[in-house]
């Protein structure tokens, strides 16, 4: 008897069994992934740390190619760009004078009102070495890990504005959840009306504004910055501009462009709950309150005793 005649059905049978087993295992993983997060988070960190150096090497030619294309564009429009920059520079010089005056005035008011000023924020610079990869996730890997001081929750910015926040860290690389991801929620303030809202990613290019109390006070073109609520992300980081979509909803066009992400800064912000109280300067202190209060109380007591 030809052994191949029995081997073929057996191979097909084992192939089918293996297929059913793998399908069941994958379905089980889908269900377990929600419940048992620690094991999978650990596995993710290991795989991420292994892949990060490879992705970093692979992303370098991409960055170089991007630079070549940008340079070519710049050369093509160098004269127009020069004219535009001259005009912009003239406008900005006027703004600079105004900004310096306002800065001095704000500093004076802060000293008078004894405002508790946030400590300066340290940062670590790194590169976004990967892309999101899939259509349902908007995360990137940056080559800044625990060894460089990265922690979960820290804000990540680039030259344009807020990019996202760190959601997991390995020794050498971290995962950044971008503003457009389905799970991203960032407390923001819309200026100049100063209404608070939550910027919620929904897997589209423009995140939504949730929990906005007064929509009528907001108009397209308003600036969106971080509110600092929750103490995780510093206040005042530029996020984007309010836009109105064709269906009439207000969304946000982020300043950071995920298609051009390259160098980013991880902000090592600590909520200033442990900052020592800053007393006002002596010249601004009034007369001691406690001594006058004591004398008033003793006077009241004496008058009561004589009656």
């Amino acid at each position: 008897m030809d052994p191949n005649r029995t081997a073929l059905p057996f191979r097909e049978f084992s192939h089918r069994i293996s297929l059913v087993f793998m399908l069941t295992l994958a379905a089980a993983l889908l269900l377990l992934g929600r419940a048992e997060t620690y094991v999978f988070d650990r596995a993710r960190q290991v795989v991420t740390d292994l892949a990060a150096p490879l992705l970093e090497v692979a992303s370098r030619p991409v960055a170089a190619a991007r630079r070549v294309i940008e340079r070519t564009d710049e050369y093509a429009y160098v004269f127009d760009e020069n004219e535009r920059l001259r005009a912009e520079n003239a406008r900005l010089l006027a703004w600079k004078e105004m900004a310096l005056n306002l800065e001095a005035r704000v500093a004076r008011y802060e000293a008078l009102l004894n405002v508790q000023i946030d400590p300066s924020i340290n940062y670590v610079t790194g590169r976004a070495v990967s892309d999101a990869g899939g259509p349902f996730v908007d995360t990137v890997l940056v080559n800044v890990g625990r060894e460089q001081g990265a922690k979960s929750g820290q804000a990540v910015v680039d030259t344009d504005g807020l990019v996202g926040r760190i959601v997991s860290t390995g020794p050498k690389a971290s995962r950044v959840l971008l503003l457009t991801d389905l799970n991203s929620r960032i407390p923001v303030v819309i200026e100049p009306a100063h209404y608070k809202a939550v910027l919620a990613g929904d897997n589209t290019e423009w995140p939504r504004l949730e929990y906005l109390t007064n929509i009528s006070a907001i108009s397209p073109g308003d600036r969106v910055v971080t509110s600092g609520d929750g103490g995780l992300i510093p206040q005042g980081l530029p996020v984007g501009l309010v836009i109105q979509t064709s269906d009439g909803n207000l969304r946000v066009q982020t300043f950071a462009d995920r298609g051009r992400l390259n160098f980013v800064r991880v902000l090592q912000y600590e909520f200033p709950s442990q900052v020592e109280r800053q007393d006002p300067p002596d010249v601004l202190k009034g007369p001691p309150i406690s001594s006058s209060a004591d004398s008033a109380a003793s006077a009241a007591a004496n008058s009561t005793g004589t009656e």
């Binding site: 793998m22 994958a26 889908l30 596995a43 349902f136 995360t139 959840l177």
Partner: peptide, 20 residues
């Protein structure tokens, strides 16, 4: 599964979809 672990998305999503 490697895709799922690298993407940071739902664990098992692409393992399940690809096997199916």
């Amino acid at each position: 599964l490697v895709f799922d672990l690298l993407s940071g998305g739902i664990i098992g999503l692409w393992a399940f979809v690809y096997v199916l």
